[in-house]
């Protein structure tokens, strides 16, 4: 439970990672929600029966083969703990929930941050779900080095 001392997950505390082949096939949901809390919107939103949760307090487990990458779960997760991952044509993509001003725009260059808030590089916004379509939680897809998709968990807009 040392993640509760730090406030972020270390490599050995991460949930199992989907394979490179799976990541290259289509989008996949990666849920970083290791603690037992009473919460279940993700499983309720999943149409593909891809999320397993024994009871409302159990942490969710994703079956990467069943997950279709439809992004219903990331829209509703109150913990903003779901990230949609993808590798395509040698490039990595992370889709994350974003709730700050200014809203990111497609084509914009952004600073990539890891779980500790440290800068790990720069990426480009390739797709945005506008905030008004999802009760003010925008979804932002950022293109980056494929090696970074299990590290990057936040972005910062470059001002000016």
């Amino acid at each position: 439970m040392s993640y509760l001392v730090r406030g972020y997950l270390e490599e050995d505390e991460l949930p199992p990672k989907p394979s490179r082949e799976r990541l290259e096939e289509r989008n996949v949901a990666y849920i970083e929600c290791p603690q037992e809390i009473p919460c279940s919107p993700c499983i309720e939103s999943c149409k593909y029966d891809a999320i397993k949760m024994e009871n409302i307090n159990a942490p969710p487990e994703v079956d990467y083969e069943k997950c279709n990458g439809c992004m219903q779960c990331i829209r509703v997760c109150p913990g903003l703990a779901i990230f949609i991952l993808r590798i395509k044509d040698g490039k990595g993509y992370v889709t994350l929930a974003y709730e700050f001003l200014p809203w990111p725009k497609k084509g914009q260059e952004v600073v990539l941050l890891n779980r500790k808030g440290e800068e790990v590089g720069k990426g480009k916004v390739t797709w945005v779900l506008p905030p008004e379509k999802n009760d003010h939680t925008s979804l932002v897809r950022v293109e980056m080095d494929p090696e970074l998709i299990f590290d990057v968990r936040a972005i910062r807009i470059i001002e000016g």
């Binding site: 406030g7 970083e32 779980r115 808030g117 440290e118």
Partner: peptide, 16 residues
């Protein structure tokens, strides 16, 4: 240790 839900802590920790 952090008293609240980990996911809430992670949300602010990753913003530094």
């Amino acid at each position: 240790r952090i008293g609240g839900y980990f996911v809430h802590a992670a949300k602010v920790r990753r913003l530094g």
